[in-house]
Simulated assay, not measured.
Amino acid sequence: MVYPQKAPLSAGDFLNYVDRGLYQGAAFYRVVRPDNDNGLPVIEVIQGGLLTETPPTEPVTHESTQQTGIKHLDGTISLARRDVGTATAAAFFITIGDQPSMDFGGSRNADKQGFAAFGRVVKGMEVVRAIQKIRDTLSYEDSYMKGQMLSNPIMIESVQRKN
């Protein structure tokens, strides 16, 4: 479920990707668990999106959980980012378990702005948990993502709006 009323920019960007068919060929490609998380505090997520370095859209303005009221609880969908204002729906993640450190004021990001949550998985969390358990990962130079990038990303077969 996507919440465009609460997070109009983030949800709107995600729905734009859906409507334009931009997730055709996208995949879940990163798994973060307590045994391979190289950041603090430790989180649990799977990350997916386009398998390209350059997103086809411009970044959206950051919508913090303080603004939207959407917390990073089990199954929350959120935009991945480095710096505030760099996120697009080209990269998103799904939380496994409650992840308050990813909310506004949380310590996962030094800037304490958290991530832009915009939706929630309402059916299929067993698939999310199965993807997170995959341990076949690439050798990766970036020490932050070491042991997290899947050797065989899980392709997204279809993304569509449900009326």
Rank of each mutant, 00 (worst) to 15 (best):
I94N: 09
F104K: 05
V84Q: 11
A80K: 01
T95I: 03
D74G: 08
F118K: 09
P100T: 04
F104C: 02
A117M: 01
Q67A: 15
N109K: 14
A80M: 09
G106L: 01
T76Q: 00
N109R: 14
T68F: 02
K112F: 03
A110S: 15
G114Y: 00
L79Q: 00
A89P: 12
A90W: 06
A116K: 08
R108N: 13
F104L: 03
S107M: 12
M102A: 04
A91Q: 15
G119I: 04
D103K: 02
Q113K: 14
N109Q: 14
A89C: 12
A91V: 11
D74M: 09
H72R: 11
A116R: 11
D83C: 03
A91T: 14
I96A: 05
A80T: 00
L73G: 09
G114L: 00
P100R: 10
G75A: 09
G69S: 04
I77W: 07
T95D: 13
A116F: 09
Q99W: 01
Q67R: 14
R81N: 06
P100M: 06
Q113T: 13
T86Y: 07
G114E: 00
G114M: 05
S101H: 08
G114N: 00
A90I: 00
A80Q: 01
I77P: 02
R82K: 12
F93P: 00
F92M: 00
I70D: 06
M102D: 01
M102T: 08
G97A: 10
T86Q: 06
S107F: 14
D111I: 01
T86S: 15
I96V: 15
T76K: 13
I70P: 04
F104Y: 15
Q67V: 13
F115H: 11
S101N: 10
A90M: 03
Q67G: 06
V84K: 13
D83L: 11
G69T: 06
I94Y: 03
D98A: 14
A89D: 07
G119V: 05
K112G: 10
G69Y: 07
Q99Y: 05
S107N: 15
D111N: 13
R81F: 05
G97Q: 10
R81W: 07
Q67M: 15
L73M: 10
G106N: 04
G69I: 02
F118Y: 13
G69H: 05
D111M: 11
N109T: 13
Q99G: 03
G106A: 01
D83G: 07
T86M: 08
Q67P: 08
G106D: 03
A89W: 11
V84H: 06
R81E: 04
I94F: 05
L79A: 04
Q113D: 10
R82G: 14
D103H: 05
A87S: 15
K112H: 12
G114H: 03
A90G: 15
F115I: 10
A87M: 01
A89E: 07
A116E: 10
F115C: 07
S107H: 14
R82L: 14
V84F: 08
A91I: 02
A91P: 02
D103C: 01
K71H: 13
Q99A: 03
T88G: 02
I70C: 07
S78V: 13
T86F: 00
G85L: 12
D83N: 15
H72Q: 13
G119D: 08
A117T: 03
I77F: 03
Q99E: 10
I94H: 05
R81C: 02
F93M: 07
F115D: 11
T68C: 11
Q113Y: 10
H72K: 12
F115P: 00
N109A: 12
H72P: 08
I77C: 06
